[in-house]
């Protein structure tokens, strides 16, 4: 395990060192961005809509019973932008995109494509890892913004149409506007950026270290997704703790 962590840190450092090449790799970055969007956007939409709806459904009746139903928009919005959207989008991307990255790089390792790159004096980190890590680090925060908007809409829809809640959309969004400041959204975006970096590095590392044919590729994909999920949740706590002091309007 410690060897794996060490290798991942080295891969991250090598990727950072390759950053000056990012401009040259812009075509591959754009292709990766397109692939990530294509693979995740619809799922992100469905997931966010229902998460927002469930948040309203769970908390709405309690708030209404206590006479503070008008604060529902605030609650849903904060929960979405600071916690649920970053975590859920990162998990979604790890499952749909990270697994594909690990499988693709794993297959390239097994079928000697990465060795072939090395013999052509082409650095596989610059050629394969850098575009993927940059693309995923851009895509996940973008997905989080999208997820926030859709989740808020989902929450508002349920709040307005559920008989036990019956908070009008106007009230919901007024509460949302009053309760959420840009700092809350930035907080979620910072978290999602770090989650995305982790997912990118973990999945690329698993892909590049794949050995042993198709079974090895399967093993790498499983490890990539499981390790990503575990690290997202651990990192979520650490980042939440670190960002707490900035909660009082630092980003606003």
């Amino acid at each position: 395990m410690f060897r794996n962590i060490g290798e991942m840190v080295l891969l991250f450092v090598a990727t950072v060192k390759a950053l000056p090449w990012a401009c040259r790799e812009r075509r591959k970055i754009a292709e990766q961005l397109f692939d990530i969007g294509n693979a995740s956007l619809f799922m992100a939409c469905v997931l966010s809509l229902f998460i927002g709806g469930v948040l309203s459904l769970q908390s709405g009746p309690v708030l209404v019973e206590n006479g503070i139903g008008s604060a529902l928009g605030n609650l849903v919005a904060i929960a979405m932008c600071k916690e649920l959207a970053p975590v859920m989008m990162s998990i979604l991307v790890a499952g749909r995109v990270g697994s594909a990255m690990a499988a693709e790089l794993g297959s390239m390792s097994v079928y000697q494509e990465i060795d072939a790159l090395r013999t052509l004096a082409i650095n596989p980190i610059r050629f394969l890892v850098l575009p993927r890590v940059i693309a995923i680090s851009i895509a996940v925060p973008c997905l989080v913004v999208f997820s926030n908007l859709v989740g808020w809409l989902g929450g508002a829809f349920v709040a307005a149409h559920n008989d036990r809640i019956a908070v009008p959309a106007e009230t919901f969004f007024t509460s949302l506007r009053e309760g959420v400041d840009p700092g809350d959204v930035v907080n979620g975006l910072i978290k999602s950026f770090f989650f995305a970096l982790c997912v990118g590095v973990i999945c690329c590392h698993q892909g590049l270290t794949t050995q042993g044919g198709p079974r090895g590729i399967g093993r790498s994909v499983t490890k990539a997704v499981v390790n990503s999920l575990v690290l997202i949740l651990i990192l979520d706590y650490i980042l939440t703790r670190l960002l707490l002091p900035f909660d009082n309007g630092f980003f606003a």
Partner: peptide, 27 residues
């Protein structure tokens, strides 16, 4: 040194995401 060496792999080692032309011109 690699700029003076070349290797033909058992599996070919061609990049499946690239065309033949892109593979050959990759270097």
């Amino acid at each position: 040194t690699r700029h003076r060496l070349a290797m033909v792999f058992q599996s070919g080692g061609l990049l499946n995401s690239l065309t033949v032309e892109e593979n050959v011109g990759l270097y």
